[in-house]
Every structure is written in C-alpha cells, then in structure tokens.
C-alpha cells in the first residue's frame, strides 16, 4: 500500500534538549492514526515537521512522496494547538479570504461545516472562546480537499457538547478512507473507536506502534494500553 507519510530516523533538538529522537514510522494512505503521549513527548513538534513548517535536524521524511517544506502545506491541513487564526477578521471575512488563499478549498464542504459546527459568521475571531476557535480552525482544515490532515489536540479545553460536534465533523469529513489523518491528543477515550492505528510517543521516541485491532485482540482498550506504556 502506498505510504502517505514516511519518517526514517527523524530527530529534532531545541535549546540543547532533544525533542524528537530517531522517529521511524510509515503511515499508509487513508489511515486514521492516533499520536498519543504525555505532555512534552514531542507530538506537536512531530506534526509541525510533517506539515513542513518546522525543519527537522536529522532523518528522512516524505509526505506523499515529497520532502517536507512549504509545498507540503499545499496538500496537508494542520490544525495547530494554539493561535494562528487571523484575529482581526470576522469568521465570515476569514472564510472569504480562505477561499482565495487555498487552491483546494471546497465551498460545498465549507457550507456543510458552517452548519454542522454552528458557526456564526459575523463573530470577530479575536473574541471567540477556545471551543469556537477550534471549530473555526477545524473548518479551515476540513473545508480543504487536502489528502493529509494533522490535528493537534483538537479537544483541549473543549466542553463535552463541543467535543461531540467536533468529533462527528471529523468523522463525516475524514471517515471515508480517502484522507490520512493524524490526531495528536491526550483524550484517548473520545477518539478510541476512530483510530486504525496508534503511535505512542515517549520522550521524543516511538515507544509503541500498534494497530487498534491488535490492541483490541489482546483484550485491551487503547486507554489501558496507554496506561501500560506510560506508567512509570
């Protein structure tokens, strides 16, 4: 099966502290992968490197066959954990700009997502709550036809109802197997039924790489496997 993402010995150091160490992984097209790990494990850094906004210091990476760089952003949609939305615009104004800025923007998906995520277009982005901000970020990612979607902590600080809305939007837009999705999260339970595969990242290295099916076959849940991998 063709690989959407290939990492071979990827390493990254910041302020003399190793953030990622020898990360080697191959993710086929159409898989939904959970990237799990405690705080500071290197999940955000790995997603940034895959999206092409951060240059790795060591190793070889291919995203849809290309080395990561700004061009990766053409076919990769990244939902960053913090900020990165134009606070000086309203949601509606941002959508108008986004249509022009992203060559792969789908207006059909956009309309669907605006309804599903219950977004009010006249709301200034600067005044959105955390949950509303994530929804706008998610709209920006999922309204594109990008074959690779990277979601960084989509549930952090989100209330239960918003979580359900967000999760169902992700399933609807990415659940048909045409997109490769990586979700970095602490919230194992909400995403557990969706994952095809789980990567456990510990201190910058892949501690375990298993399919959800294999975990279940052992009579474990992803959450219990998480505890097993990360408990001291």
């Amino acid at each position: 099966m063709q690989a959407a993402i290939e990492c071979d010995g990827v390493g990254f150091t910041f302020a003399r502290r190793p953030i990622l160490r020898d990360v080697t992984v191959r993710i086929p097209v159409g898989e939904m992968v959970g990237l799990l790990g405690p705080n500071g494990a290197g999940k955000t850094t790995l997603l940034r490197i895959l999206a092409g906004v951060l240059a790795p210091e060591a190793g070889r990476i291919r995203v849809l066959g290309e080395p990561p760089g700004w061009r990766t952003l053409r076919h990769t949609a990244l939902l960053p954990e913090r900020g990165h939305l134009p606070g000086w615009l309203t949601i509606g104004e941002w959508i108008i700009h986004a249509r022009r800025l992203y060559p792969d923007w789908s207006e059909e998906r956009e309309r669907r997502l605006v309804d599903d995520l219950a977004l009010r277009l006249d709301r200034p982005i600067a005044r959105l709550s955390r949950g509303e901000g994530v929804r706008v970020g998610l709209l920006t990612c999922l309204a594109r036809e990008a074959p690779v979607v990277l979601l960084d902590e989509p549930f952090t600080g989100i209330d239960l109802l918003s979580r359900e809305t967000i999760a169902s939007a992700i399933v609807r837009e990415c659940g048909d197997g045409s997109r490769t999705v990586i979700v970095a999260t602490h919230d194992v339970r909400e995403f557990e039924p969706l994952f095809d595969r789980v990567l456990f990242l510990k201190d910058g290295s892949i501690a375990a790489d298993e399919t959800a099916e294999a975990i279940r076959a052992r009579g474990q849940s992803v959450a219990s496997r998480y505890r097993e991998v990360f408990s001291p």
């Binding site: 906004v53 700004w70 061009r71 952003l73 960053p80 990165h84 939305l85 606070g87 000086w88």
Partner: peptide
C-alpha cells in the same frame, strides 16, 4: 505585524 505571523505561516505559500 499585528497578530504575528501565525495566520500567514500556515498558508501554502513559499516563505
């Protein structure tokens, strides 16, 4: 420079 570079840096354009 308002609101930093974040919004622009995620766009699929060469730096």
């Amino acid at each position: 420079t308002g609101d930093g570079l974040g919004a622009t840096a995620m766009l699929p354009y060469s730096r």
